[in-house]
Amino acid sequence: MAKQSELEELEALFHCHKDMVFKTAYLILGDTQEAENVLQEVFIKVYRAGDTFRPEKGGFNTWLHRITVNQCISKCRKKHLPFFSLDERLEEGDFDPPGAPSQLPEELLIKQEESERIQRAMKSLDRKHRAVLTLRYFDDLSYDEIAQVLKIPLGTVKSRLNTAIKALRKELTP
């Protein structure tokens, strides 16, 4: 049986990083259920395969991002998921987290419209471009960190980001 204290250590890690893992996976996969599956797989992997973590090759954050992105990509491969299968449930309406102040309807509508436009544009990109944009503009990783997460040369990070953002802009242009 696993020791309670070890699971508590993992639980502390989970609570600290669950949002990052879940939201990164959601932006790459576009589906909350798939993101939830990735979240579970990632932390089970952290527990079982933590010995593959090499601090000299980058921090824990980079390592966790790498597992997250790898899980997302392998999910796409296994299930042939459409890259961005927009989550229908979200479009039906949001609910505020408990206690959170609700926004003005107009404000919500404008934000919703803008973000849906971007979501549609993201849908047209392939997964490696979605991943690189998510890591840079959601997770705020540096180019060097992205290179470590995706295990690609720095030059490839630059060119991939360039291609991704230009493709996105093309989609956003009316």
Binding site: D19, F22, L27, A35, K111, R117, Q119, L133, Y137
Partner: peptide, 16 residues
């Protein structure tokens, strides 16, 4: 736009 949209999109979802 992208940074802002990512914030809005992810604010609507959270793990179960």
């Amino acid at each position: 736009e992208l940074r802002h949209a990512f914030k809005v999109i992810t604010a609507r979802v959270s793990p179960s």
